[in-house]
Amino acid sequence: MSESLDLHLASVETSLDNPVLPFLRQDRIPHIWCPGCGIGTSVNCFCRALSDSGLDLDKVAIVSGIGCTGRTAGYLNLDSFHTTHGRAIPFATGLKLSNPELNVVVYSGDGDLFAIGGNHFFHAARRNMDILVICVNNFTYGMTGGQVAPTTPVGPTQTTMPYGNFENPFNLPFIADACGATYVSRWTIYHVRQLAKAMKEALGKKGFRFIEVMSPCPTLYSRRNRLGDGVDQVKYYKEKSVIKNGVDTKEVGLGYQGEIVVGKFVDRERPTWLESMNAHYSHHFGDAFQPYGVKNGQD
C-alpha cells in the first residue's frame, strides 16, 4: 500500500460507510459490470434518488429484464425481480396492479426495453401504467457481445453490422412522449446531479414515467469503434450535450457521436390505468363498486 493510502486510511473512520451501501445488496458487490461501464454510475444516482425521495424502501420494488442493465435488480436492496428478456414492463404491470401500494421501477437496457420488449413499452405508456421506467442506453447488446441494437446510431460497427450499422435507430424520448408518458427526460451519466434529481422527481410522480440514461459500453461499443474508453465517452457526453428542457421530443434524436440533447422534455398529468378503472367503474356501478387498491378512501 502506498504512503498516501496509509496516511489516508489513518483518517478513515471505520464506522463511516459509503452512503449508497445501504441501498445495495452488499453481499453481491462487486458487480459484474466492466471497468468504465456507466450502469453502475446510473445505479449510484438511483440510490441517491431513493435516499432523497424519503420513500419507504419496503414499498419500492425493482424489476429488470435481461442484459447488462438487467442485472441491476439483483444489486439493489429492494424487493427485486430479474425477469425474462424484454418482459420487465408486463411483469411490473402485474406487480403494480396486484399490489398498488408498491412504487414499481423498471430498470433495464435499450435492447431489452425497445427491441424484444418494445411492444410492452408502447402499451404500458399508452395505458399510463403507474411505473417508472429507467432505460440505460448504451447503444449495443453488451451481455451477448456487442450486436446491433434498436438504438445503435447509423455508422458504428457492431458484430452483426460488421461493416457499420445502416439501420435507423429509435428516438426513445419521442416514442415515450408519443405513447403518452407523463414524464420523459434524458440525461447522460456525465450529468450525475441532474440524473439523480430527475430520478427523485420521477419517483415522486404518478403515471408512466421514462428516463433515458446514456451510458458508455467501453468494451463492446467505444473501443470497437475506436472511441476510446468509458471515460472518453463520458467526456464526449460532456462536450456535446446541450440542456434543452421542454424541447419537442421530435428534435432529440441521436446521431453517431453528434450533439446530445438532454433535459426534461415532458411533465404532465394523466389519470393512471388504475385511477381510470376506479373512476370508470365508480361511475358505472355507483356505490356498489369498491375502488380497488385504495385504502381508507385515499390512495
Binding site: 459509503n18 458487490i29 461501464c37 450502469i39 453502475g40 449510484n44 450525475v192
Partner: peptide
C-alpha cells in the same frame, strides 16, 4: 461518490 460506478 456520485460518479463512481463501483461504489468505491
Amino acid at each position: 461518490g456520485l460518479y463512481c460506478p463501483d461504489f468505491a
